[in-house]
Amino acid sequence: MKEEYLKKVQTVDDLITAFYACLGGESGEKRDWDFFKFLFHPQAFKIGYEKDINSNFRPQWIHPNDYVERIGYWFDNTRETAFYEREVGRVVETYANIGHAFSHCEAFHSKEDMANNKPYKQDMKSIQLAYYQDRWWIINMFWHGVTPEFPVPERYKTFQQFP
């Protein structure tokens, strides 16, 4: 299994594509959470900006393992609708063994919504990456919801890669 996983983390593009693919599925469909955790460095965090009770944006940290325990159960067992994410655009910069990607994505409640281009939300993700031990790792992933106050800049609406 590890060799199969390693094939999917050899390039930044493969790693980010694999991340989006492993979360998608129908209601109650089991995800490959071992693979999801494999994408992240053991010391990585997922950090989402959400509004608090005073409507102020604040970061919330969660370790990928904790995400699997909390959110994974919900995806696999209790979610009443499907969940799919599709990347719309990405800007990647790399230097030596470090990389960074800004990734614009959309989320959908069904394959039909995705086919009809009807997302229920959009996010911008900042993904910090490192190459070592013969593979790329997600070191940290920040995301922020797209809102009228924080629209998607034009440069993130297409795919671009810089060395």
Score class of each variant (00 low, 15 high):
62 I>V: 08
132 Y>N: 04
17 T>M: 03
105 C>L: 07
21 A>F: 04
128 Q>W: 02
56 N>I: 07
49 Y>C: 10
57 F>C: 00
147 T>F: 00
84 Y>C: 11
109 H>G: 13
145 G>R: 05
71 I>G: 00
113 D>V: 08
154 E>A: 10
140 N>P: 04
138 I>A: 01
116 N>Y: 00
163 P>S: 13
155 R>D: 11
156 Y>T: 10
58 R>Q: 08
93 E>S: 14
12 V>M: 07
88 V>Y: 14
14 D>G: 09
36 F>T: 02
123 D>I: 06
5 Y>I: 04
39 L>M: 13
120 Y>D: 10
66 D>Q: 12
46 K>H: 10
2 K>T: 10
54 N>Y: 10
100 H>S: 12
108 F>G: 01
149 E>L: 09
153 P>K: 09
83 F>Y: 15
146 V>F: 06
102 F>D: 07
70 R>D: 10
42 P>F: 04
62 I>W: 03
61 W>T: 06
163 P>W: 11
83 F>G: 12
8 K>S: 11
11 T>H: 11
130 A>R: 02
35 F>P: 02
71 I>A: 05
123 D>N: 15
24 G>Y: 05
112 E>T: 12
158 T>K: 15
7 K>L: 12
66 D>I: 01
72 G>P: 02
57 F>K: 04
2 K>A: 12
10 Q>T: 12
111 K>E: 09
134 D>R: 11
10 Q>W: 07
15 L>Y: 00
69 E>L: 02
100 H>G: 13
147 T>H: 00
120 Y>F: 15
77 N>V: 01
34 D>M: 03
140 N>R: 05
2 K>R: 14
140 N>F: 03
76 D>P: 07
141 M>N: 06
133 Q>D: 13
3 E>R: 15
